[in-house]
Design a protein around this nucleic acid. Structure first.
Lengths: 151, 151
DNA sequence: GGCGTTCGTTCAATCATTGAACGCATGGAG
DNA sequence: CTCCATGCGTTCAATGATTGAACGAACGCC
């Protein structure tokens, strides 16, 4: 059967997962955000089957997450670079990395983030932009049509 | 072919996606974090095929993200509740929701978060825990074996 | 007994993913 | 010019995975 479409659900998470909900897509985006642009480079780094990579890149371009550009005419060569929509996935990838570090670890974590100016290690935390309080410290409640009523 | 195993990659993101990298898993976890516990409730809310739900719940229990508990003996009834590992996925789901709100929107966003004490709207932002600066305002650099050398 | 609830399993059909091989244009070495 | 390497795919058959629909089993209620 064809994979079910999630993009019509009244839910931002479902619509996001309709684009990003497979094992490879976010890994490709991660590499793209690290500066990888070429087909062969993605393939070599991820060991992804070439046919799958072709399909994923096409979907990512179609979804407006990567942009396909020719960087050479003879021979014709293409590169894939993140758009603003693609760069917007960085927080998703960062939090996913944090979760993997904490709960699926292979200590020590293989990759970390640092400030390119100061060299200091960065510890990403999710806070409320207004109060500055970490979300873990707040009693957070979801509000909307698909929040189940209590009981 | 069997889906390729990502869990042996030297990458927390890959190991995370090995568990969470399919269209349904994070939606199930989202509902579980909203308080949904029963098979029929997941199925009705997500319109997920029952066989797929059975498989996903088993994987989530196997991965230690949900815990299966019997809440009744006659007839035997099971419920699925998030573990600490499952609760750790909340930041991933929140950032995914934010991305969906911003880039795959169906304005206005259907769901938002608020402080359960004050009722004020919460705007989650990723900051460095030490400096408090938003990651978007910093020049962030990834450090580790799989960061490609520049060129 | 008859009906509803809850939690699944089974089935055939159809999709997606995989590894391996092939295609094709170019560029350089000899 | 010949041979091989690079870059970016496409094609193929085999094998999983996902799907909707139907079935089932254990009980509670009236």
């Amino acid at each position: 059967m064809r994979r079910k479409r999630l993009d019509r659900m009244q839910c931002s998470i479902a619509r996001a997962l309709d684009v990003v909900g497979d094992p490879w897509t976010l890994l490709i985006v991660r590499d793209a955000l690290l500066g990888v642009t070429r087909f062969e480079a993605f393939q070599a780094r991820l060991q992804i089957p070439r046919a799958t990579l072709t399909a994923r890149l096409a979907h990512l371009v179609d979804a407006g997450i990567l942009e396909r550009r020719s960087y050479q005419d003879h021979p014709p060569r293409e590169e894939y670079v993140p758009t603003a929509k693609g760069r917007g996935l960085r927080p998703v990838i960062v939090t996913l990395m944090q979760w993997g570090d904490e709960f699926a670890r292979d200590d020590p974590p293989p990759t970390h983030l640092e400030d390119a100016s100061t060299g200091l290690k960065i510890e990403p935390t999710l806070v409320d932009r207004v109060s500055g309080a970490p979300l873990t410290a707040l009693r957070v409640r979801a509000v909307g049509p698909l929040v189940p009523r209590r009981g």
